[in-house]
Design a protein around this nucleic acid. Sequence first.
DNA 1: GCATGAGGTGGGAGCGCTCCCACTATGATG
DNA 2: CATCATAGTGGGAGCGCTCCCACCTCATGC
Lengths: 344, 344
Amino acid sequence: MSRAEQQQPAARPTLEAVAARAGVGRGTVSRVVNGSPKVSAKARAAVEQAIAELGYVPNQAARSLVTSRTDSVALVIPESVAKLRSEPYFSDIITGVSAELAESDLQLLLVLVRDERERERLTRYLTARRVDGVLLVSVHQDDPLPELLERLELPAVLNGRRSAEESLSYVHADNAGGARAAVRHLLSRGRTAIGTVTGPLDMEGAAARLAGYRQALAEAGVPVDEGLVAHGDFTEHGGREGMRELLARRPGLDAVFCASDLMAAGALQALREADRRVPEDVAVVGFDDSVVARHTEPPLTSVRQPTEEMGRLMVRLLLREIAQPGRFRRQTVLPTELVVRKSA
Amino acid sequence: MSRAEQQQPAARPTLEAVAARAGVGRGTVSRVVNGSPKVSAKARAAVEQAIAELGYVPNQAARSLVTSRTDSVALVIPESVAKLRSEPYFSDIITGVSAELAESDLQLLLVLVRDERERERLTRYLTARRVDGVLLVSVHQDDPLPELLERLELPAVLNGRRSAEESLSYVHADNAGGARAAVRHLLSRGRTAIGTVTGPLDMEGAAARLAGYRQALAEAGVPVDEGLVAHGDFTEHGGREGMRELLARRPGLDAVFCASDLMAAGALQALREADRRVPEDVAVVGFDDSVVARHTEPPLTSVRQPTEEMGRLMVRLLLREIAQPGRFRRQTVLPTELVVRKSA
DNA sequence: GCATGAGGTGGGAGCGCTCCCACTATGATG
DNA sequence: CATCATAGTGGGAGCGCTCCCACCTCATGC
């Protein structure tokens, strides 16, 4: 045994080796591997047997080099760590994305962007076109990433949108509709002084939830009292602070719509501190229908969004966009649903 | 303008183009890009300028083809969907892994394995060595993946271990110690009839928690009553069932240690059904210190494990293993900590 | 009988990079 | 002044694949 053999314990067979074994040319093996129809049954059988015998697996790097496809897409989550850990939202998105990608033969690259340094790293990565497409979650209004994607002409699908005039493909939930349903529910229960704790308004989704809140009140002919609007940031802490603020400004309020379950959980704490009973004194509605909603005391009425389905849909749109670089674009809104529990 | 130019709007510059512009050879550019010290200051400056002017980014496929490194690692989570969504555990692991990987210049590939088909897909992928290393989370006793990794001689680090004789590198929390601390705490509060709801015992971590429970009782001279042990599966539903079982068998029990927070939340429900007050009649301790623990009524006393740190550590070990294919192996246990809240 | 076309096939060229070896300056040494 | 390390450098070879074109075969039509 030569030294070379000792050092290369598992030299993987190449396309060429398969061709030799099957008694055909490289081209034919390539055609079989890539599922081209222009191969005779006989040749195909010989090649398939050789592949099985040799345990051949194509070398992706060599393939990429010539096709300049990578067969992978990136899921980019530009979000503070705190968000990721507390929200099952991202887990659900990931689950949907992963499931749908497994159907085709694409790989999922997960990119968490925390700071400027990591954003630059991502920029380099995308510039190098190391993925065929990008899924971008949790878009902020002034996020520079969507622009970069457009400039690079890299297929992309957003979750959420920068504004109503978004030019890229996106998928999002009917935030306004969900909020409207929540507030209508409160109105139908006879509540009249309904406050809200908003999310960060530089996210279009949060802004839409606030808009839905206003619409529902307007439809019911209830004058909007700006003193009943507090601004939060989707976190538990933000919800607690927002609720305290509302209680200080409008002690007589009898309901509150929070733009996330976590904020609703925080609001619950603030209400407890203030000795308000839920739902008797103040009814509470959250948004997301996350695990937390089921475990608070009392359990939260909440607006459910089809998060996993959103992930799946994003992938489907992205695949279409990759297939037709001739700029396939689609913008989709998925319905939300009010889940009623004890808090309202 | 020729047709070719029209069709290639953004032909990326190659190493060769940089070399030409800088007036040096390909080798020198390669050396600069890869940080070799064997380059004169003058040449380096010229190359760096050319790179900046041209916006050169190396083609990873070409590099991979010759180095047979991919600069990416896979994080494999072979777990039912239900687990992922309810447990912040995976989110925390992902966060840690991602943060630590960003330090080096590796990419994170996330692979969720749900069924046999997806496992086969992963096997093909690993066989093709499309990653430099693998992080494997949530290992079951009879999981075939660790064996595959050994056979392929692919650098790997497990989270958890198959058994006490695990041959691969791994990182896990001190499950037995955490459980012992939990039960000691209950004993110190004067509880004597302490039950437990276990996790799936084909996971070494769950088995270790049960062992810790037994140890603590033994140390205190309390005879172990097998009627106080119920088997769950880490889910809320399993916890509820387990608790019902315990109440049926040993109505007089005054405390219960659940091997996960979710199961503890389920136990809380069962106790409420049975009109037992927590903690007055029955004290409850969970494991994981997840979001859920903070939101149940009453909030759960729970064993915290440094999940994010485990993710980071796994990456550090993996990098070492990749650097020294001469089989660097390390097995690490991280400490746990009891977080006391109202439930016990 | 010969042109025609469709269905298959083999293999050269080339993707962009790293590796490595041969080579050139440059200075140190006896 | 010849000799020899030493630091840099250029570029050929080759990684494993797909693309594409020339070519081969065989059935069909006139």
